[in-house]
Design a protein around this nucleic acid. Sequence first.
DNA 1: GGCGGGGATGAATCGCGGT
DNA 2: GACCGCGATTCATCCCCGC
Lengths: 370, 370
Amino acid sequence: MTDGGRLPVGRILIGDCIEELRALPDRSVDLVFADPPYNLQLGGELLRPNNTRVDGVDDAWDRFGGFEAYDKFCRAWLAECRRVLKDTGTLWVIGSYHNIFRVGAIVQDLGFWILNDVVWRKANPMPNFRGKRFTNAHETLIWAARSEDSRRYTFNYDAMKALNDDQQMRSDWFLPLCTGAERLKAEDGSKAHPTQKPESLLARVLLAASRPGDVVLDPFFGTGTTGAVAKRLGRRWIGIERDSGYAAVARRRIAEVEAVDDPLALALANRREQPRVPFGRLIEEGLIRPGEVLFDSRRRWFAKVRADGHLISDDHKGSIHSVGAAVQGAPACNGWMFWHAERKGMPVAIDVFRQQLRAAGEAPAARVGA
Amino acid sequence: MTDGGRLPVGRILIGDCIEELRALPDRSVDLVFADPPYNLQLGGELLRPNNTRVDGVDDAWDRFGGFEAYDKFCRAWLAECRRVLKDTGTLWVIGSYHNIFRVGAIVQDLGFWILNDVVWRKANPMPNFRGKRFTNAHETLIWAARSEDSRRYTFNYDAMKALNDDQQMRSDWFLPLCTGAERLKAEDGSKAHPTQKPESLLARVLLAASRPGDVVLDPFFGTGTTGAVAKRLGRRWIGIERDSGYAAVARRRIAEVEAVDDPLALALANRREQPRVPFGRLIEEGLIRPGEVLFDSRRRWFAKVRADGHLISDDHKGSIHSVGAAVQGAPACNGWMFWHAERKGMPVAIDVFRQQLRAAGEAPAARVGA
DNA sequence: GGCGGGGATGAATCGCGGT
DNA sequence: GACCGCGATTCATCCCCGC
């Protein structure tokens, strides 16, 4: 905070991030948040099942000559970020599996000390349309101190705990994408930037690892989410952005932001996630065996459990709900209450097993005594 | 599966994993699951960077040396894993932020093609006792095909969907730690292995990316979780383990496992393996009449059925797919879902007739018992 | 004004087999 | 190896529009 006068605080530096970083003084910044190009390497076009086109990221700024060129670029900007970082400061970088492993290895090679990797679990990710992979439902953030010896980094442990119903904040964060009114639009209504991050994500980062008045640097400023959240939370900010069009959008955006009195209120957009237990989890946990036969409470209908969590009756196969409905000829059925397994000679509704799993997951200590 | 006779299937190879891997033939393994060490000692040299307390330049150099040795080790075993992997096989590696970035970068450098990174969210992680970081509540798995061109890798998409209540399986998995009765104990009651993984995690990996009879290789076998789950799920397995004590525990453990014997229970939902039914068969079987008019669900477009299985609309003729695409002006169309016929005054998708044919031809014997 | 259906969309490394 | 046709494949969310 003391040397902020020499810094271009509250400004967007237009230019190459490595060159602009070189002009900043040593150990002058409290937090770096970086959302670098991911080097996605997308192939042709991807169509949704309804034949509309997925608007993938194929901008020139995301294309590199190969891993070698990408690594060289990252070594350069990460080394400069380390140089400008105070010893009490920390680095945050976000990425996906396309780039985060390379970034993480370089972060370690440069002498940073990783404190956590944090997973942003997306509440509403884009599905996998071709059924060839798992839904890519998360991105990874790396949180690192300047060096192994930088033990006095800023971490607002109690603020994070307060944000999480007085339990320690975990390394997996469940937050929605940036959509709707928050998503900046161009004049033609299209998205102003292809990879705008949600303010809730930046708010959690800044509340966790910075203090009011701290200088937050974002070397890939884009449309200025970092600056907007920093201003709102009473932090100072510096942005670096190559594209003057993005920078103009960011300037207008940040000008409209007002600082808040109650910083924690901003991050409370954190809805409590409903713990969902799919039927398949009961099989994975050994509470139900593959091949076991389930039945309704009056033993009128029977169905066999498959390893993948589907049921098979004489005429139907599918989920516990759909097979339950089908055997009864009913339009719908709550399979959790309908189907039973035999335990010690007694029928037990499978919902009982689900409750066991929920209890185990919410209160791990209880499991130890079990 | 065909060359399994040359492989040491169902055995634990005691020795250095790189040497033992070298003895296995090329392209002979269907899945590799690896849980490598991240603080390993090679040749008596202690590589853990935080055990060396040196100042200044020496510190950076020493740290680099530590990572270098670890990287070299990983390049060696990962290269061998890639050599023994079939083109239809995939690699799984699990790690934490200490090592997963280095592993992931090497995986990419060796030519593997990352399909997903998967986050194991721990239901009951150890808290952070000193309040200096976020609760380290997850580990990361990397799932990769042999190369970018290996497009025929095994992925049981429908089985994963079935396990997740008929929604796509996401890249974040919520599973408990290995505790309680599942956790193997030494004679003195202490845990037999420090990093034993839960069987539920391995079960999901094997159900997702292997088939019954496949050969699953684990180069860091430990106390044999991979072997135990593989046996239970009807997969074959090969383990490599340096420590004969761990291997002995693993052998006893696996001997007690019983395979799920019911093939129906192990069968996985897999729509893709259903027999192909040409549209013309529906006409031959009398389910659709030549000259009948088909239409889309909202009756915006119509086409007449020709005896040879082609459709004719006002402006187009061809297959159900090409005419469906043409009338909509879409690049492609699944004619089976698009076109409907009228039956008892109601529109019926022609896919329903195809399902009838498949059910009739597939397993008439099974229907007898119904 | 409230409600419900339809459409749009999000950092995406997203066929396959027969000829 | 290239070409070509079959035909498989989506979840949460928000906005807009019509009733």
